[in-house]
Design a protein around this nucleic acid. Structure first.
Lengths: 346, 346
DNA sequence: GTGAAAGCGCTAACAT
DNA sequence: ATGTTAGCGCTTTCAC
């Protein structure tokens, strides 16, 4: 609306404008605006006042080109609707808050191709670091990361070989431990319910670990069910109904995430099933949404916020270790048994 | 890890490197890389091959400075954990997909100060447009938006005076209509439950509209309850218990969002209350999470994805109207009565 | 404490 | 179809 108002500049303001308005050289204006010392208090105030009056906003593009420094950190995640990732992003934002660095988010929709183009796009802004979910990338992406010459932190997962630093949990181990807990509680006919997405490597690794854990006890998955798309809660209900119709003797259901698990739990409770005696359930992630359910679903905390924080700390050069790169941080998710795993008396 | 590998460049590659490797002038390389026509197929391929081999990633900073064009759109929202905003962002991303523009997200945590600094930071990258949630900004922020000289789209809300374009719904009207529906269904003792956040202007406007709607029928809010922080589902339970303990004769509860509404609904059902006869409930947003509940909470769709799309279309210069700025798009949220509002026999 | 000159890596505009 | 020149708005470096 105000585009043609009397104060609207035809072109954006530059340092020169502030310089002229304050009667001080561009160089000194630049120093004041970047709070570099060695400027007299008088000049400082004159400049600041002029800049404020004009409504000057510095041009970081020119600044970055001249200084060869960009205070941006590229953050690349598969999705924003997963609930997990916004929490990781919060952790990153918090840690970066007063580091002078600014996160820029990119979303891949679990597509390797899209990851490649998002990464390319972001690297072309010459960020100071990259935080990227997962260890599985296309050859091109991996090459770009290796050649970027900046700190790279792969997050969420540690099962694989990182380009540089890595912060995450072992989903394989998480699966194994969940299997052990379930078997230890006496369940024997165990089903797995998860996403169909072929690119959700972490869910796949959890399932593989889970199978390995069952194998330790001489067990196998009794049945499995996969979905894609739609409301997770609803899908959880539907899949639970389907798998139990097919296989009524199942005594435990392991879900690849908490939301479908919660849907399944609600379905079981409504059907009047005895949870956790007749049937036990568990999910994954430890989303605090579950705090609101009357019956708490067993789950495992994925340490999302902490992962974000630690990754950001590495990029900001603030991690405790003196390492310059190649840090390897494995966090340990903790089983939260809730009310849906039978208590063993031993 | 690979930082010191044999192929790691000490400094980033430039056009000049590609130029030398391909034996073609920088200018022609630049043309090839930007797919500007007027380059022979032979040269094109030579250049592309050289760039690929070297692993050249263009420097957008230099490009933007030279061309005075930046393909970035600043998107500023209060929060990522609200579930509503990721959907808006998805709508924006989708619409921007093949426009050549790239969204960059910033989060304010519902703080006006933070909004100001995020906005300043983003404008200093000279984006091609700004999409920002809400119509309430600090004086400084408003001035920055007015002087930016680029398309500004304020989203979510239309109750107020926009800087330039606006895409959203009237939360006031949404409140009024919900009140009319509730009163029309015969409820009379109505309570409101919402967030305490003083900066959630949209929730406030819904409440004000709601009160206005009740007033049309000579009614007032019988009671209210506010919360801040914590798991929304859990808070919904707690607030519901509290308000009904204080005021057992309430026959309807209007929640400022679906998550606390779902918590309240679960609590009522567990207590064996007759929903919707003895007590009715309604939320706001139309989150698809509700699809998974056995009893569907009444709600109103906030048109989140659509808002994102339309806003992005305006910034991309693709909106249907021939206007250059100052577009005003008001969407109409639709009441989804679900199972928690008594059916009237009229 | 302040200023002048050079140049960051690209692209617009104009040759050829 | 390709090359040359100038300059985007800053910061670095060095001089005063």
């Amino acid at each position: 609306m105000n585009r043609d108002g009397p104060n609207t500049p035809r072109r954006a303001l530059t340092l020169r404008d502030v310089s002229e308005a304050s009667g001080v050289s561009e160089m000194t204006v630049s120093r004041v605006l970047r709070s570099r010392g060695d400027v007299s208090e008088t000049t400082r105030e004159r400049v600041l006042e002029a800049a404020r009056q004009l409504g000057y906003v510095p041009n970081k593009i020119a600044g970055a080109l001249a200084s060869q420094r960009v205070n941006l950190v590229a953050v690349i995640v598969p999705s924003l609707s997963n609930l997990v990732f916004p929490e990781v992003l919060s952790g990153i934002s918090e840690e970066l808050e007063d580091s002078g660095l600014q996160p820029v988010f990119g979303v891949t929709n679990y597509s390797t191709e899209r990851e490649e183009s998002v990464l390319y796009e972001m690297l072309s802004w010459r960020p100071s670091g990259v935080i990227i979910a997962g260890l599985e990338h296309s050859d091109n992406s991996r090459a770009m990361l290796e050649n970027a010459g900046i700190p790279i932190v792969e997050i969420m997962d540690v099962d694989g070989s990182p380009v540089d630093s890595v912060v995450g949990i072992s989903h394989k181990r998480a699966g194994i431990e969940m299997a052990r807990a379930i078997v230890g509680a006496g369940y024997r006919k165990i089903g797995f319910l998860g996403t169909k997405m072929p690119h959700d490597h972490r869910a796949r690794k959890r399932m593989e670990g889970f199978q390995a854990g069952l194998a330790e006890a001489g067990l196998e998955l009794a049945d499995q069910e996969f979905y894609s798309g739609g409301s997770a809660l609803l899908k959880g209900r539907e899949m639970t109904e389907a798998i139990l119709a097919r296989n009524p003797e199942l005594d435990f259901l392991y879900y690849s995430n908490d939301m479908i698990g919660a849907g399944g739990l609600m379905w079981c409770l409504e059907k009047g099933m005895d949870v956790p005696e007749r049937i036990g359930l568990a999910g994954f992630n430890g989303v605090d949404l579950l705090d609101g359910l009357s019956c708490r679903l067993a789950t495992m905390d994925a340490c999302r916020r902490e992962i974000g924080r630690r990754a950001a700390a590495i990029v900001a050069g603030r991690s405790e270790t003196g390492l310059v790169g190649g840090e390897h941080v494995e966090l340990s998710p903790v089983l939260q048994p809730g009310d849906t795993i039978r208590k063993t008396t031993g």
